[in-house]
């Protein structure tokens, strides 16, 4: 299974969100491709030792965001990339994420220019990983 998920209970992030984030990361890193199946709810719940409803909630969130498709009786599959959000909503989410980022680095005393260069590098790296055909077999 190319999808390896791990969770840490007792943290600030609810378990269902940790599971959904894990799948998002796997998609972004190209570890899974459109059409790949997610593990079954039951199997993943047993592997992670969590309530199946928690896994179900994570998968349902991903389906709502258009990242996975639910196929009746067959389970969940990684969806073709599509953008479910409107331009305005995407911008709202971007601003929220920027706010979080800026708060996280506020007291590190970097000048804006010093922040931009590692940020640009990381964004380009992420973009390269997202390009089809670059799927990593490892």
């Amino acid at each position: 299974m190319p999808l390896h998920l791990a969770i840490t209970p007792g943290g600030d992030t609810p378990i269902y969100r940790q599971i959904a984030d894990g799948v998002r990361r796997a998609i972004l890193a190209g570890k899974v491709a459109p059409g790949d199946p997610l593990p079954s709810v039951r199997a993943l719940a047993e592997e992670l030792v969590v309530n199946p409803n928690t896994v179900m909630r994570a998968f349902a969130d991903l389906a709502r965001e258009g990242l996975v498709d639910a196929q009746a009786g067959r389970g969940f599959f990684i969806a073709e990339r599509r953008q479910p959000y409107s331009r305005a909503e995407r911008e709202r989410r971007l601003r929220a994420a920027v706010e979080t980022f800026v708060n996280a680095i506020a007291f590190l005393d970097f000048k804006p220019a010093e922040v931009l260069s590692p940020l640009r590098e990381r964004l380009e790296e992420a973009e390269a990983q997202q390009t089809p055909g670059k799927k990593d077999a490892s």
Partner: peptide, 10 residues
């Protein structure tokens, strides 16, 4: 053990 509860409880 709240982390256990978080894992399994509905």
């Amino acid at each position: 053990l709240l982390s256990d509860v978080e894992r399994v409880a509905d």
